[in-house]
Design a binder for these strands. Sequence first.
DNA 1: TTTTTCACCTAAATTGTTTTAGAAATCAAA
DNA 2: TTTGATTTCTAAAACAATTTAGGTGAAAAA
Lengths: 352, 352
Amino acid sequence: MPIKYYFVMKKDKISLKDIANSLGVSTTLVSLVLNNKGEVHGISKETQAKVIAKAKELNYMPSFMARGLRTGRSFTIGVVVSDISNPFYSRMVRYMEDEASKNGYTLLISSSDESHNKESKLIKMLIDRQVDGLIISSSQPNLSFLSDVEASSIPYVLIDRVFEDNLNVNTISVDNIQGSYKAVEHLVSQGYKKIAMLAVTPIYVSTIRERIDGYLRSVDAFNLEYGSELLVELDFYNLRQSILNIINSMILKPEPEIDAIFAINNNVAVECLKSFKELGIEVPQNLGFISFDDIDLYELTSPSVSAIAQPLETLSTQAVNMIIQNIENKTHEFQQMKLDTELIIRESTLRE
Amino acid sequence: MPIKYYFVMKKDKISLKDIANSLGVSTTLVSLVLNNKGEVHGISKETQAKVIAKAKELNYMPSFMARGLRTGRSFTIGVVVSDISNPFYSRMVRYMEDEASKNGYTLLISSSDESHNKESKLIKMLIDRQVDGLIISSSQPNLSFLSDVEASSIPYVLIDRVFEDNLNVNTISVDNIQGSYKAVEHLVSQGYKKIAMLAVTPIYVSTIRERIDGYLRSVDAFNLEYGSELLVELDFYNLRQSILNIINSMILKPEPEIDAIFAINNNVAVECLKSFKELGIEVPQNLGFISFDDIDLYELTSPSVSAIAQPLETLSTQAVNMIIQNIENKTHEFQQMKLDTELIIRESTLRE
DNA sequence: TTTTTCACCTAAATTGTTTTAGAAATCAAA
DNA sequence: TTTGATTTCTAAAACAATTTAGGTGAAAAA
């Protein structure tokens, strides 16, 4: 491996002072002009033009740190999700990035891996970095861990995963209960009767709780066989094995107890699909299959996978807008938004 | 939508001064102690203990901006990729995040959408934000656009997409030429003879260039039918249609000109898979199929997709380590790393 | 001629650190 | 009794911006 040493002359940054000195004016004046406060402070047109020209000539860029120190603003929004490599979150974050950038904000993104401890640390770190606001998809069960955020008086919005109705908090999420209901309803309409929900720990995450709730309501409403016995809680850290167990014990037998699976999220669904492939399970003939969350690959599997899609773009852009409103208005006005899901019917639930 | 107004008392932040005042010492002393320079500056053990205790008691957190202003450091690494929602990059970024965090750094991630203009702006933005280093997967053809970075004397590393061998730049990438060669070699070994490469604009991106190069070399080496006529450059902004055209004009005919497709990256591959599905093309019977890049969904499609996998984790963690070395050593020592790819054989290239 | 008004500009404080250069106090050596 | 070390600490500058409170000089009004 070739190695070389170089010594680069550090070109020092242009500051307000440099502009001011080279024009023989004060830094105050330069600052005012460059912040579009020239008019209101009665700086003459010519002086303004000179300043602007000089700034351009010297390629002036304000110091982020100096400005941040003085104003307390960073034009940065902290984002905490469980895992940026999960396609659900990477798409979400991408929408956020675009919306934030439109408004002159940048994102500081971090992954909590569903760990409370890590999540709290990340939030602390983001606050230290003086983010102007936080968008959090929390893995915590309730607001208590948010004490850091509350104490800091930084505005935040909970996205996707929200806590018990709390009017003092910004939230944006989808109607998970209704979404689950739609999924089961669709399976029922296709003639499936023994519908299992494969949920996953930790069940205190609001989306999980609500989706289970929706499932249980629909089981009641449609008076399904076995009832809630077919609600299975898989171990998050042992997804693969626990799914194989279910399949072996409840499906691969002469009189299967399950004729359709409703996967609670894309993680579970992907593992299911792998198992189906491995064990040669025929979907939708032997087993109906539907998933909460809609990810790209559902279109490409055989059969393609029906899903309950969340309006990701709206979710993301609205979250960003909410937080920016809070940041810029300085008024602490809280909003709660709940969006509808969409049933996407593909091959995995269409029995011939 | 319920709305409420709240007025939160802003708990102001604890500064060095607060600690200093409450102990009747100078801020200098407090700063030294909290930066572990107490010993070397001969601060007495008792005073040190008092300061540390007080800092903990008051829950002191240094101001990121003040520190950054004074030291010129931000403990932030800027990352520019073409699209964070592309699974290749979202996984890459995730590995980077973990490695950076181990070393006390945070990432500032942004997507360029393959636009030169946007990429330049992002880099400028990141420099403004005083990142300590940059990791760039550039869509530019050469170094010229990097003048901003060079001028700023911020260390950077080019990842995945690197330019002509340049010993004055940090680079880390895979051996794309060898990777392409392996793919074709494998197809040949399976009896495919009319192997098309579906490339994509812009072809000046180094990975594209090199993969094409590797394809052409192997076409030569194996003396393949049609030779380089089967190299197709698809339009990035019109992928879907251009792929359908190829399939209709070159495959769906009695005497097809193509018996295997080598997709130059996951974007192209995904569109191919969609088209195959739509048009009912049987892979691998009628058509062999392999892709550069290995993404999760290749395991789940039917047939599963063979691929040339990049060592993503190594790529990412090494990039982070390179940049941190550069940041912390202050010596400008450039490294070039080229990693090997791995051929992953799945169903899409296994003709019965 | 003095006062007021107006247009245009600036000094200095402030933000919270780090760091340089040196001060004060104590004790030992000369 | 002065000098020199040694230990322990501090004042003040620097980083680069924003902002408050006001200054200056010329023209207009009294």
